[in-house]
Write a protein that binds this DNA or RNA. Structure first.
Lengths: 297, 297
DNA sequence: AGCTTCCATCTGAAAAAAAGATGGATCAAT
DNA sequence: ATTGATCCATCTTTTTTTCAGATGGAAGCT
């Protein structure tokens, strides 16, 4: 087979070290070996990779371009070996993470960048489920790890770890009657409340219910759109209000009574019975470590 | 070097043909060669690629995954050889195409997909210049090919080919005085006209000028936003009006006089002096062939 | 049971790669 | 200008790798 890995390796080393001799030293091979490999490669490709006027070889334009290609080939070979090694180490090949929209996403970018650096061979799938329950996804094996707002008592098969508490804020539209001043409990009850559509039934769902009339909506973001229209009021995490495109049309009136910010727990969940691989364990640890910095409170 | 191209080639062929013997026949090698190569590869990777119970080898889970990786390595090698070949054939390594926003983009996707298939080794850069003139970019060598609305007489260094004619339509906001009925010339002149900011000066610029008061705006899309606000009227290609996000707030009143749609020429331009490579020629031909199907009229 | 086709393994032959030696060229320092 | 170090290309020899052919055991089909 022409254009072999040895040729490419010699070529890349020569380009990197600036001379065939240095490349030979780096690869622990004789200078003549590098010289012939590069010459053969040039012969196979039908062009000159180096200009040999002068003491040291200098990359030609073609050499410059093909150097990048050669690196890719060699890197993909390394990658293949890495994938094989992670197979041996029983690292997961694929990891599905379901994250509730309640989780502030700012930290996710750096977290998953670090994950990619540690586990380059793991395929990662991120779910931001709307109508489906995160714990349901974990329970059914459709997700390996979940980050969710604990609305209900969790099934016993689910292991969990509390990441933190997210305070909810009263929010309504600019022209809503509640926007005028300090709000008390009785006044809240008289207006329509917008709540996230519970994906399962249970008592936790009722804890945050205050008003007589309630509409159920599938997402906090959509709730804010509706709140803006004056359709009702809602309890929404502060960071969602702040990053909403309609935030300028929203008002967060102060509340008259105590314990008024209704904190909800944000939980990291996984399945007790399904064995976790190194990647899942790593990700769980890093999620847990993000607790203080990533979340309010 | 362990994990060689020969090993990967044998592996992929064995997986594709379902047996080592068949792979050997396909690669014109002895069955024993394939067998040894695959065995060595498995040894190097430290895992089994095939399950050998039964008559024919069957891919293991690891084999399945690594097959994809092996294909990538081999493909990248092929790609490198292709890049080298196109260097030899003096194919451009890079092609910059500047396209005026006036050109309807629907056809571009399939066109450039076909380009990628024909010239996989050419780096393509697409420009959709706003304030800069396409012909200027081509003249300065910043773009190899341009598609532009001919506003001016083209410099003699520029070669061109007319792709077609785009009819302009009168457009104004819902509440604009012109929206009420059939419009005549004199009435047009009394209201503010919005025109695309000419990037160079010249007589063609004046041909489309009707009103006494004119505002210059850098893009048709922004013009439509301003038209919607009732700031003035404009002449805009139909396909831009149709695909505008504010199209529901726009009105296109009929005109009383003849020749009322002011067609403008859409030109394919390139530099006469700079030699065109095969990729540029191919792309020019395909652009020209798109004339009938891609444009109105 | 018999036949075919599969795979693994062994052996010797062929090919490829590497090392070592040699000579001509370049560059820097003297 | 000369010297010495270092560079590359090339040749020869040695080592390693690859390949083909032969053989035997196992699987599947009739």
């Amino acid at each position: 087979m022409s254009v072999t890995l040895e040729q490419l390796q010699a070529f890349v080393a020569a380009a990197e070290h600036g001379s065939f001799s240095a490349a030979g030293r780096a690869l622990r091979k004789a200078q003549s070996a590098i010289s012939t490999q590069v010459a053969n490669l040039e012969d196979d490709l039908g062009l000159a990779l180096f200009s040999r006027t002068g003491r040291n070889p200098v990359l030609t334009a073609a050499g410059e371009r093909l150097l990048a290609e050669a690196r890719v080939v060699l890197d993909r070979r390394e990658h293949l070996i890495g994938v094989a090694a992670s197979f041996e180490a029983h690292v997961e090949h694929r990891l599905v993470v379901a994250i509730d929209e309640l989780y502030p996403e700012q930290a996710l970018g750096t977290l998953f960048a670090a994950f990619a650096a540690h586990f380059p061979h793991v395929e990662l799938e991120l779910l931001f489920p709307m109508l489906e329950d995160v714990s349901r996804l974990v329970l059914d094996g459709k997700a390996d790890i979940g980050v969710m707002w604990r609305q209900e008592v969790l099934p016993t098969e689910i292991a969990f770890h509390t990441l933190g508490w997210v305070p909810l804020q009263l929010v309504c539209g600019k022209d809503h009657p509640l926007a005028r001043g300090v709000v008390d409990w009785e006044e809240l009850k008289r207006h329509r409340q917008l709540m996230v559509a519970a994906r399962s039934e249970g008592p936790e769902k009722q804890r945050l219910r205050s008003a007589a009339e309630v509409w159920w909506v599938e997402s906090h973001w959509i709730i804010l759109q509706m709140v803006r229209q004056g359709i009702g009021w809602a309890l929404v995490p502060d960071h969602i209000i702040r990053s909403s495109p309609v935030r300028d049309d929203l008002v967060t009136p102060p509340l008259q009574f105590d314990g008024a910010d209704w904190p909800v727990a944000l939980e990291l969940v996984w399945h007790k019975q399904r064995p976790s691989g190194p990647a899942a364990r790593w990700l769980r640890e890093r999620f847990a470590a993000l607790r203080i910095s990533g979340l309010p409170r």
